[in-house]
Simulated scan of single mutants.
Amino acid sequence: MGIRITVVQGDITEQRVDAVVNAANRGMRGGGGVDGAIHAAGGPEVLADCVRRFPHGLATGAAGWTTAGLMPARWVIHVVGPNHRAGETDRSLLLSCYSGALAVADELGAGTVAFPLVSAGVYGWPRADAIAAALEALGSTPTSVVEARLVAFDAAAHAEIGAALSGRPGS
């Protein structure tokens, strides 16, 4: 049986899953949006682990993990999405964030993973394509992850993801 993709509206830092995915920047030292929220909720251990594990940051499209610190999840899987506003429009880098996160989840033994819409916030990736890319990568990447939970910050994103999910074959 393949991965079950679900959608919820809420705060990714409060998800009771094995791992949450952080839409990080290349520097891996915290930032705004999801990245800032995860660092704030996880506490100083998340940043300390980022500094230790990623002394030179992480490349766009790459994935790596740290502790989740004070969050209910056990791990944070950090991915660096392409910055559409800065001209990074290679969709394969966006797909790589999801497939890379699943590969890291498999290495960790994580069965449940909560994802934001990578690059759809401050990085300006068009939301409809960000949703399509997430569903494409999550639905086609071989993994032992049982549930990939897309966490929508607001009602509009929740409705759009839900509509895209209901239109998928097999849903």
Rank of each mutant, 00 (worst) to 15 (best):
85 R>S: 14
62 A>Q: 13
77 I>A: 02
140 S>W: 06
107 E>W: 03
102 L>K: 01
99 S>K: 05
62 A>F: 01
129 D>A: 11
81 G>F: 06
114 A>D: 11
99 S>H: 11
134 A>E: 08
140 S>Y: 04
117 L>W: 05
139 G>S: 08
120 A>S: 15
78 H>D: 10
74 R>T: 13
132 A>L: 03
105 A>R: 02
106 D>C: 08
134 A>T: 01
142 P>K: 07
96 S>R: 14
110 A>N: 05
112 T>Q: 13
123 Y>A: 05
127 R>E: 15
69 G>F: 08
119 S>V: 00
125 W>D: 09
87 G>I: 11
87 G>Y: 12
120 A>V: 05
77 I>D: 05
107 E>Y: 01
143 T>M: 07
69 G>R: 06
93 L>C: 13
86 A>E: 15
108 L>Y: 09
85 R>Q: 14
137 A>P: 00
74 R>C: 04
127 R>C: 12
139 G>Y: 10
135 L>H: 04
70 L>M: 14
83 N>Y: 03
100 G>A: 12
70 L>H: 14
87 G>P: 11
126 P>I: 09
77 I>K: 00
122 V>N: 10
92 S>C: 02
119 S>K: 05
94 L>N: 04
77 I>L: 06
70 L>K: 15
91 R>A: 14
114 A>Q: 09
132 A>G: 05
67 T>Q: 07
122 V>K: 04
85 R>H: 13
82 P>K: 08
144 S>H: 13
134 A>S: 12
126 P>Q: 10
113 V>C: 06
122 V>P: 01
112 T>E: 15
65 W>P: 02
134 A>M: 03
116 P>I: 10
105 A>Q: 06
70 L>Y: 08
112 T>V: 10
104 V>R: 05
92 S>H: 10
84 H>L: 02
106 D>G: 06
104 V>T: 14
127 R>W: 00
102 L>T: 00
95 L>T: 13
81 G>P: 04
130 A>R: 00
126 P>M: 12
105 A>T: 06
122 V>A: 15
88 E>S: 12
133 A>M: 06
98 Y>H: 10
120 A>N: 07
133 A>W: 00
130 A>W: 02
65 W>F: 15
112 T>F: 02
96 S>P: 00
80 V>Q: 08
65 W>V: 08
137 A>K: 01
115 F>V: 01
102 L>H: 01
81 G>W: 07
69 G>D: 11
120 A>C: 13
82 P>C: 10
97 C>I: 03
133 A>G: 01
68 A>P: 02
83 N>L: 02
127 R>S: 06
109 G>F: 08
71 M>K: 09
97 C>K: 06
106 D>F: 01
112 T>G: 01
93 L>I: 06
139 G>R: 03
92 S>I: 04
111 G>D: 13
80 V>G: 05
92 S>Q: 14
133 A>H: 00
141 T>I: 08
93 L>G: 01
79 V>H: 02
130 A>C: 09
107 E>L: 14
138 L>T: 03
